[in-house]
Design a binder for these strands. Structure first.
Lengths: 191, 191
DNA sequence: GGAGGCATGTAACCTGTTACATGATTGC
DNA sequence: GCAATCATGTAACAGGTTACATGCCTCC
């Protein structure tokens, strides 16, 4: 008969993301989501359908707790803050080596098999992807200018945000260059 | 009461990968997996636990079928080939625009929150990631040399494999350069 | 005889997305 | 009044990973 599975190595990756954001500043679910989309969006995404249940679970476990709401604000919003236990959990997570991301790039898969279909479909997908990446990169450039003044920040707490932004700029640039060269190549094949 | 969910937009991404491989050449589950790991590994991964059930499902739906095994080979292996219906399904998939990949880079998340833990942990993770990316890139370079002779192939059916390989080379190079510059920066902060 | 690769599968389980549902507040 | 944004949640479901289970074949 099948044995009980050992404790899974995998774990909810939404949890540490929430703990990290709350370590910086107490926030509501909606604010956490907006903050993640705004500052980590180019390498981390969260859906509300995952965020709210995870917030509830973290609160149940005592890793976060609800901030006493000031009585004058009676909108139904729930602001959380990190507890000492949550902070310890976050620190333990930070010390663990990160898992290698599992790549699954559908666009590349379609390109790889493009000779089995219409080549101009692949070309269209590629052009769309180029436009998308370019747009994302421009958004990062705007943020670099507006938040960091276009220069490497001196303050250590800003530095990490700047470094992860640089990652996006570098990788998007490489992707754009590659897209352009492939489009070039495909157009030559067709001609 | 909750309504029945509409037909999901999401779909099994293992399916088209299998159909594509079988369109090139009939193969067993094990061979498909090995082929994917060998030629698409830097942008597409499959686990056996997903592959075998999906093969069975595709066969049930008539998109692939078992190749009659030559009698002299009585090892328990099952080789599949694409049917006409499978080929049509593959072509329809190729024409659809690819979904944007959802990025979730744990290493970047840990770096972003590194000031909440020990900075040398982040540095260690980064160094490990650099070594990993370098190794992956060297494997691609080896393949570029051995399979393509280090040059852009003339034959159209080889070109697509070469182009997706170039993607890996370009993106890994950008990642390595970024890792190195961040390691530099972090060491200066510590000093 | 044992290690390692070939080969096929199942079980358990969690993760995370999409769609649904609801309502308040703010600005035009 | 209406649209957009703020705000919180639940339901349904598929996707996919890890671990388990089994056994053959080949080479040393």
């Amino acid at each position: 008969m099948p044995m009980r599975a050992k404790a899974s190595q995998r774990q909810n990756r939404t949890r540490p993301a929430i703990l990290g954001v709350l370590a910086r500043c107490p926030a509501t679910g909606y604010e956490i989501r907006r903050h993640i989309a705004g500052t980590l969006g180019h390498f981390w995404q969260e859906s509300m359908g995952q965020l709210y249940p995870t917030l509830a679970a973290l609160a149940r476990e005592g890793l976060i707790r609800v901030v006493d709401k000031p009585s004058r604000d009676d909108r139904k919003r729930i602001r959380y803050t990190l507890t000492r236990a949550g902070r310890a959990t976050l620190e333990a997570w930070l010390a663990q080596p990160p898992a290698r991301p599992i790549e699954r790039n559908e666009m590349l898969l379609k390109l790889f098999f493009a000779d089995l279909g219409r080549l101009d479909d692949a070309e269209r997908h590629l052009a769309a992807r180029l436009a998308d990446v370019r747009e994302q990169r421009e958004a990062l450039q705007t943020r670099e200018r507006e938040v960091f003044g276009g220069r490497e920040p001196r303050k250590p707490e800003l530095l990490l945000g700047w470094l992860t932004l640089q990652y996006g700029l570098a990788v998007f640039a490489a992707q754009m260059k590659w897209c352009e060269s492939v489009l070039d190549r495909l157009r030559r094949v067709e001609a």
